[in-house]
Design a protein around this nucleic acid. Structure first.
Lengths: 200, 200
DNA sequence: ACCTGAACACCGTTCAAGT
DNA sequence: ACCTGAACACCGTTCAAGT
């Protein structure tokens, strides 16, 4: 029951040293951590940060609540791990998508993030109480801001308007997530915004 | 100790009927309810919805936690009472302020609501779980939307752009509350947005 | 009608004890 | 090194009991 991943013959590989499985332990640690983050992502996304208790996350990951505290200092650290991974995934997919009109790219982002609106709320709420969440949130806006300013410069926005235009766009995108609308409503808003904000 | 508001000579007025103080009871009830809402407003605003427990709100209002449940069905109902009163107060002051340029009025609203950003977060988060909060949130956007479309029409925004422009403005204002900036930064954003969105 | 204290089923987190 | 069960101080809410 204990060490169940390592005690079966199936899982023993050539790198294992008798008694001290050097290369095995770190890998297991990473895998279990990932498992916790996956469970937390699913539950935070579906039920929201508050309703998804550490107990529920733990059981979903097949561990005891206390085990999570071996991998993370507190619940906010789990939240940061969750949103980091979601951002990374979406960012990777976004960068592969590059050459398409700006409005299409923005609508794609809104569409991708739509299901994560509970994570957005959680980050905003927890930022006020957790410095670790607050720092991640600031870093998030810095990363996204840079990317967006580059895209906007290419779209013809003048140098001195780059910062505020980018910020407006980010704020609207974030808000669209927590104020759900139909595809059409979103398109009307994003199209009008870009038409007005991007000089031609 | 019980009925302390009514047992002192100071508080007995002419309308009081022996044994059954007809006019007194409803007034007391309203006053105590107001007291709870005031305490909740202070604590929700300063500490956030989650950190401000029913126990803390009750003690701040000079009652027992259970007493609150005589006046409100649950914590979300307290939240709705709090945000309703805040909105009413700000709306009243706004309507007295009427004749001033649109950008000044918007910056005034952002400034007024700035300190209530924790309430904004709470409403967004609770909307997903409480139909009473969700309904209030929808009503809020309807009320504000109407007011804003009128102001925008006067500012020269064409009929067919009224709805999306109003929505963009509301989303940006709401987001500015949860993403604090300096007065100058806010002014730059609002000025640019209005310059671009309002045809001239 | 209004208010209370005790209780219920939770919560995030800690810690001594196990392997 | 990693994991657990029991415990701690909370939480929102309920309810029998008081006035």
């Amino acid at each position: 029951m204990l060490f169940k991943n390592r005690s079966t013959a199936l899982n023993v590989d050539q790198d294992t040293v008798v008694g001290v499985p050097r290369n095995r332990l770190p890998r297991d640690r990473v895998e279990k951590r990932d498992e916790i983050v996956s469970s937390a992502t699913a539950l935070f996304t579906d039920s929201g940060y508050d309703q998804a208790s550490m107990t529920r996350v733990a059981h979903h990951a097949g561990v005891t609540p206390t085990t999570i505290y071996w991998y993370f200092p507190d619940k906010d650290a789990v939240l940061v791990a969750v949103v980091s991974r979601v951002l990374q995934t979406v960012l990777d997919r976004y960068l592969e998508l590059e050459p398409s009109p700006l409005d299409e790219r923005i609508l794609w982002v809104v569409d991708q993030l739509q299901s994560y609106h509970r994570l957005v709320d959680a980050v905003h709420t927890r930022s006020a109480f957790s410095t670790e969440v607050d720092e991640w949130h600031n870093g998030f806006h810095a990363t996204v801001g840079e990317l967006q300013e580059k895209a906007l410069a290419e779209a013809g926005v003048p140098e001195d308007e780059l910062a505020p235009v980018s910020q407006i766009l980010t704020l609207v995108i974030e808000s669209l997530l927590t104020h759900p609308r139909t595809d059409d409503e979103r398109r009307v808003i994003v199209d009008l915004l870009l038409r007005k904000l991007c000089a031609q």
